[in-house]
Amino acid sequence: MNAPAPASPPSPYSSAMGKSAMESHTLSVLVDNEPGVLARVVGLFSARGYNIESLTVAEVAHGEHLSRITIVTTGTPEIIEQISHQLDRIVPIHRVTDLTLRGRSIQRELAMVKVRGKGENRVEAMRLAEAFRARVIDATTESFVFELTGRPDKIDDFVELMRPLGLVDVARTGVAAISRGPEAL
């Protein structure tokens, strides 16, 4: 049995700012790809007690050494606004865009899902994979590895369906996101 959680001390900040509901936002952050930049971003989140639900990073312009970090975070609208401003203060950060605020953005994630089983389960896993447009990228007589891209909730759904059919491992990339339409971020 776990001891009951101690009542958390009243935060001096809870009263005035904390009344709004929690929301999930996707932030797209363009940074100079220099040593330590990811540590700065992650350190900011831990130091100020913000949440990270997903974080991806990769260089997007090799010549200019620019990387894009995509962060999915939750908080009240006030906290999300703070997070954007705090990120913007980090010196090697070029630009922070709140894709959720801008609306009309596309989110994709890639997952590799390993399922082990025989007989009816194996057939069922294959059928579901087809319905989800997952590809088989590795197979043995008793296992498959499926590759699937899509919105994170679609991947969640697929993983849940695989669970009773012999789910072994899941590896996910985290979310990459971009805005719709012709404009740059």
Partner: peptide, 27 residues
């Protein structure tokens, strides 16, 4: 002091060079 009782009847103008200072503790 106590934030939910901070200057309850006022409109507030905030001039600052640091955007993250704005709306951090007080709207």
């Amino acid at each position: 002091g106590r934030l939910d009782a901070f200057s309850p009847g006022s409109k507030k103008i905030h001039i600052d060079i640091d955007p993250s200072s704005i709306n951090k503790n007080v709207k």
